[in-house]
Write a protein that binds this DNA or RNA. Sequence first.
RNA 1: GUUCCCGUAGUUCAAUGGAUAGAACAAGAGCCUUCUAAGCUCUGGAUCUAGGUUCGAUUCCUAGCGGGAACACCA
Length: 569
Amino acid sequence: MISNIHQQIKELLHEIGITGEIELTTPPKPEMGDVAFPCFQLAKEQGKKPNDIANSIKEQLENTQRTLDFIERMEVFGPYVNFYFYTSTLANMVLTDIHHQKENYGSSAIGTGKSVMIEYPSNNTHKEFHVGHLRNVCIGNTLVQLYRKSGYTVIPVNYLNDFGAHVARCLWGVLALHDGIVPEGNRQKWLGDVYAEASQKAKDDENAKQEIAEIQKKLEAKDPDIWPLFLETRQWSIEKFVELFEELGVEHVNTFYESDIKEKGQEIVDELLKKGIAEVGERGAIIINLEQYNLNIALVRKSDGTGLYLTSDLPLAEEKFSKYAVDESIVITGTEQNFYFQQLYKILELLGFDKKLTHIGYGLINLPSGKMSSRAGNVILYEDLRDQIYDRLLEESRSRHGDWSEEQILSVAKSLTLAVLKFTLQKHEAAKVVTFDINEAVSFDGYSAPYVLYVVARINSILRKAELVIDYSSVDYSSLTEPEEKTLVLMLAVYEETVRKALEQYNPSVIARYCFDLSQAYNDFYNNHSILNAPSTPLLQARLSLSSAVKTVLQSALQLLTIETVEEM
RNA sequence: GUUCCCGUAGUUCAAUGGAUAGAACAAGAGCCUUCUAAGCUCUGGAUCUAGGUUCGAUUCCUAGCGGGAACACCA
């Protein structure tokens, strides 16, 4: 919408003789106008002062025949020509469009005809599911939504690493430390604990390391000694993952298993050797020297013959494109694997693989006490965090709504819990390391999900009380003149561009911030102007229309973050 | 040691090379007979250092300092 408006202004500027690419910006303060044209470039080309140029452009614009109906006036501030819009004309354009398109407002067609596979969270079986994985799921979910909103066909998939050394270590822990024990309750968590325990035990125990290596060999050979235990324990993990994915709104259309493709990976390693791309390194391990690409040395097979992540990731790339006709494959992992993926992609390139592969890294989640590590057993588990937040929200909800049924309180607390989790993990730029403070996560003030959801609940309440059925296609917006109203309309107008920016940067925080900013602007409006007691009927209708549009866009933006709103809270 | 990422209020984070560097939390002072106070208003507070490029640098370049990550048998 706003790019539409920009386009019209650019055409107007072209008409008065300005050539070349025109850049428009947004002034820092609303008092300074709604859109600005900086004159630095022209000043440089013409060897004049920017201020003089700005003044002469303003004069030319005022004297030209052609006008734009939404422009009220123009002012020059130093090197800028600033345009002021009529709130009513702008509102008519933007709000009519929103009410017409409803939840499709903000969609675009830039991805029409293109398809993309998004692989996430690529977690490991036999390990716990912690807040780092949650960040991965949140980012992946949002990217899926952003691509869909932009017209792409999206294939969300998972890749379960069920066949690496971590599995061998866990199974060793089960056999050597907990043989015969049948865990109760959360068996996936139990395995994660055993994995952490086994990792600690094996740290300085050469004997244990030997035994673990033996288990991995047996595993890769599908030895009946270990295979049934592998299948059983893997199933424990998978059952839990499926449950968590459903809870979090993940909709994988397929799951790839490392155990299915690792053998093929070993064949590729042989092929790499034959082609002379790979060579035998220390102690008989198979390596690929990538030093000429400044990518060091990549290990593709261990000296004992077993494989690594890299061994399996080679066939995985081929598998993805042979199974699905996608144009691009995206993988989301922590930034600590950035270098690894550079190596992987280079090796695939050397093999002649020419499909588009993209790796998106997101920053680690640190605790105020330091780094999380599953091997050290120092992690915040997703379910523990969820339960803590739920308890706090339940308490909050109860204290606020003595008149509500227990059912209603439980339901709102549950919805808010997921909203809080998802919002908290997406409010920061994806690539950045964040310090996760649990106390901050369970506080619901300020830049948080409850703040945004509260605005939607407020609007619901107003729309209910209005008891009016409004024909949004024929609202008279001429009485909309307040600065708070204009700010809201302008923010609604930039939604589509905000979605595009988030997608271009692979950054959900752009959407989270937009939700918060729009909510803040609505609260500002709400506190300064009465809607239901508006001085005139047209104004009442216009403000209801505006409120309803804010709700539509907020719900749409939250939907991109896979966050559901609540009717009341 | 080599490579990559990051240094912005007390804290956690924003800012296509542009106008007076924005928020949130924390601290202090206020606002509920008025549409939900999970809200709002007001007050203090910041670009690691030194150079360079530019009309103009938080942003780009160089060096330094500080933090994090990756770098052959981990995942």
